[in-house]
Design a protein around this nucleic acid. Structure first.
Lengths: 196, 196
DNA sequence: GAAACAATGTGGACACTGCCAACATTATAG
DNA sequence: CTATAATGTTGGCAGTGTCCACATTGTTTC
């Protein structure tokens, strides 16, 4: 009889996954370290061997989310040829990610301040932003966006898709399907570059 | 010697105010009912005479925030004559409010789901949105914005200012002063209606 | 292979939380 | 003036995050 062994084996991954599920079910506020430990079938103190504290676990979830977000944005961009289309599609991918992984998205941007010191978190989030900046710069160089302050334009684009994503996750839009949601996002993104 | 009387007198207001201050200092996560009670110089159970539970207090803070936001948007709009200028200025006021009252803004939009049932909260938040919709409709009627789905345009405008506000509050912008912050907001808002 | 050591998991404790119940004090209505 | 409602207090309970000491298992070194 192979009773449950003393060592879990993949506890770190199990905790990350369990945390995401717990947040999905109970909301990020009611999220509990002990509950996550319970789900992993492990004592209430085992998580401390893998994460300094609760914030560290959340920071890890957030970092994981940023990596997936970056990947989704790049994949969406790679399917296009024109720089401006790359930008638009990666913006759509941003919104789609938020809708697809609302728990990650919430933790990524509403994480306690302490998390934002975590180097893994910082690096992963900057990489996502850099992806956006590159698409903007390319669009400018190809003359599909007005030249000028690239950073300012990037923050503008980020603001728009972030706002859509936030309001969507918060359930403040009247759309009932993800398709309707993304259709609106496309409208907004197109509208935002109409002057171009 | 007028020792502290048994009844506080304005406990409800004191709790609301104390909650805002506590959130400002400790963050909305570390926010504690007992701590708020302590600051009001009252026992840990007194708040329950004024708010059903912790969520109800937060919902009240959020509702208060929505009322102030609505007022700020209307005042900003009233100073303009053209409908489109009213819209733009109220958008700026949205961002300015978030920067001025980050605790309120956070509670308003990241509140636990339970709060969103509170009728006071629901009404106050709809009123804020209606203000925006009206400015959009007027701009369309005056031909300063393309005709078409008014709701869709309103959600677009809301998404933009909300995204700016959220990212600003989360400290994700490189601006060091509120003035620089608002200058960027103005740029973004102008840019978003360039096609008009 | 055994012994030392590091990694990982456990149980118990502490201060703290949100909330419930019972009781105390004060204001107000009849 | 007295019943009753409104408001505040003390005490308690289960549950939380985190610290500590200890148990078990992997890994390295001779």
């Amino acid at each position: 009889m192979p009773r449950r062994p003393y060592h879990h084996g993949h506890l770190r991954e199990a905790l990350l996954q369990g945390a995401v599920r717990a947040i999905a079910e109970l909301g990020p506020a009611a999220f509990t370290l002990r509950e996550v430990a319970r789900r992993a079938g492990v004592s209430h103190n085992a998580p401390y061997r893998h994460f300094r504290d609760k914030d560290a676990l959340l920071a890890a979830v957030a970092a994981q989310g940023f990596r997936e977000l970056t990947r989704a944005m790049r994949e969406a961009g790679e399917r296009q040829s024109k720089a401006l289309d790359k930008l638009k599609q990666s913006g759509l991918a941003y919104v789609a990610f938020a809708v697809r992984r609302p728990e990650h998205f919430t933790v990524m941007f509403d994480a306690p301040v302490r998390s934002s010191k975590d180097p893994e978190y910082v690096q992963a989030s900057q990489e996502a932003f850099n992806t956006l900046v590159n698409y903007i710069r390319n669009s400018q160089e190809e003359g599909q966006l007005p030249a000028g302050d690239t950073l300012e334009r990037a923050l503008y684009a980020w603001s728009l898709v972030h706002g859509i994503a936030k309001l969507a996750v918060a359930g403040r839009f009247p759309f009932r399907t993800k398709a309707a949601m993304l259709k609106f996002a496309k409208f907004a993104i197109d509208e935002s570059v109409m002057g171009a």
